[in-house]
Design a protein around this nucleic acid. Structure first.
Lengths: 343, 343
DNA sequence: TAATTTTGTTTAAACGATTAAACAGACGCC
DNA sequence: GGCGTCTGTTTAATCGTTTAAACAAAATTA
């Protein structure tokens, strides 16, 4: 391993102290440094290809210019798309990203937060899993800057960026009602995450607004995680009801993906037999034989706002803000109107 | 920001030197330390919730226990799946991952490598873009441990992990020939990346083995990047030939995705009119109306081997090894046999 | 009992930067 | 000529660890 040039090397070469080199290279003490030396220092720095040692700098300045990102699973397109946006935004502002996947467990997320903190990240962007309130409270107590993304906890007053889930579901269900659907089911996760409740509440409100009394019978909750089979069963059970559903709102991209796989395998007709709407976005929605109507989250804004909010909070802490961005309903074939009978 | 406990705090509390605390907590000098003090130190450490400062440690030890990952684009499922595997494997071995996306440009990849090196990563895992040979050679010269993934450069002798692309294409094309296809086209990237050439060579070899002379007419090359329109045109041009193709091998998941979108939009019949095989894997292959036959790369092995190879190389540099793992052809509807005419 | 070894602990330098404070020389002012 | 003010640069401490080397006391050996 070739030794890298340090301030000391430059200082020795030019015949000055390391302090002066540091001042020049950081552009401090503008008015006071001799033009000659400054020039010589800069030249030598480029000649020796000086690259500051971030580790040493961080130790002294207590800033690493690194942010930690805790996602549910980096291999999920929702996470990785957001990761990419955060990466770009952070890079623009001079920061680097370290990441880890929590797999939706509070245990892993706790470990991860710890590991990232030990690496002295300047702040965190977190998709908090269920039951991680304690960890978040701990962060507040420690004064660690962070922003929650996608999810939030009603009882915790902190920075967060996500969408207005209630409104998003409301609009989706209203759309289904407008298309003539009467028995609208929903499949969501069995979880205490509040944004998921919002989605369910939005669904219920829309039904009520359409003069339909929401019933538990039409709502299915599956375990969070990759439970494809369970989701298939949930779909089937909604279709097996005495009065079967004529539409389903999927509570996430994973649920939709598994649901579509099931519906495809059973050759169930969409939208004739059942109309579908998905939450989030994935390329597979385009490839389903009846392209899926879905709720599009403004990923770019979410990622950028979260990153900016975090970095501003690092340099200059403010009172916490919760941001709920509007989502957009993208209407396609899977929720086209019910055909008249006999048509 | 609450002050974190340091070795000094513990030392003061127990009434010993920081050195002793360090020795105890790191389990060095096993035989020599007094049992009493050791116990007391450990107790105090847990009581004060001591977490070592990685930055300070890294500065002294010159090891950060961090690896840098340079992918083409973290939001591409191929990259993010691999990232996830690398994350898990690195974590198991006590390492953390920092990442960045190069967007297949040598400029960005160069910047990224630089940025990661300045953060003193212990090693790099890189998907090198075209024309990045110079950067790779530079890494070798510096003695930086690294492993190339997915791609490699024939002229550079260094660690790399990927698949046997030649064989993979060969098998895919042989399969198509076995199914009775005679005019097999291929769409790949216009790039100098050698693994892509291997794919084309494998394609040609298989044709020759089937007594068909490969012609340039049946090969299309599109610009790397997200060029959906261009890919659609390439598909169309293969179908517009005087003697149109009856099968297409897509050179990557992106190409396949765009190709499928086009084929879907034009309602071209698969596999009747044209048989299809994709490279890599994505969920959308399952959702295409005629599920796609594809070449599955052993992502888990690639990720794990790359990570292990890197970390071994960090602690104990060896002579470079190139690993070419076998890929697997997953046969499905999109490459079913040609139906007899009139059937 | 003196010399040697072992045991337990401390000293102090180092990693590579940053930065407040000190310092020395030149200059201007009354 | 003495004093204050700039100007340009250095000194030295510091961040939180690690670790070779020094040291002192106790135990062993000769």
């Amino acid at each position: 391993m070739q030794k890298k040039t340090s301030l000391k090397d430059i200082a020795a070469r030019v015949g000055v102290s390391t302090a002066l080199v540091s001042y020049v290279l950081n552009g401090r003490m503008e008015g006071r440094i001799g033009k000659e030396v400054a020039k010589k220092i800069r030249q030598t720095a480029t000649k020796l290809n000086y690259q500051p040692n971030h580790i040493a700098r961080s130790l002294k300045t207590r800033r690493t210019n690194t942010i930690g990102l805790v996602v549910a699973d980096i291999s999920n397109p929702f996470s990785s798309s957001l990761a990419r946006i955060i990466e770009d935004e952070a890079d623009k502002l001079g920061y680097t990203v370290i990441f880890g996947s929590s797999d939706e467990t509070d245990l892993k997320s706790g470990k991860l937060i710890n590991a990232l903190m030990n690496r002295q990240v300047d702040g965190l962007i977190i998709f908090p899993p269920a039951n991680s309130e304690k960890q978040i409270r701990q962060l507040i107590k420690q004064g660690t800057p962070f922003v929650l993304v996608d999810r939030y906890f009603p009882g915790i007053d902190c920075n967060s960026v996500g969408i207005d889930n209630h409104k998003a579901s409301f609009e989706a269900v209203t759309h289904l009602l407008d298309q003539g659907r009467k028995r609208i089911g929903m499949i969501s996760y069995n979880s205490t995450l509040h944004h998921l409740d919002d989605r369910i509440e939005g669904y219920k409100s829309a039904l009520k607004a359409g003069n339909i009394e929401p019933t538990a019978e039409l709502i299915r909750k599956v375990d969070i995680g990759n439970n494809t089979v369970e989701i298939g069963k949930a779909v089937q059970s909604l279709l097996d009801l005495k009065k079967p559903v004529d539409a389903i709102l999927f509570g996430s991209n994973r649920i939709a993906a598994a649901g579509l796989k099931y519906i495809h395998s059973k050759k169930i007709h969409v939208p004739e037999k059942v109309s579908l709407v998905g939450f989030d976005e994935t390329e597979i929605f385009d490839f389903f034989y009846s392209p899926l109507t879905y709720i599009r989250q403004p990923l770019t804004e979410i990622g950028q706002q979260a990153t900016r909010m975090l970095l501003e909070g690092i340099t200059n802490p403010k009172t916490p803000v919760r941001i709920f961005l509007p989502a957009q309903l993208v209407i396609r074939e899977s929720s086209m109107p019910v055909k008249k009978k006999g048509n």
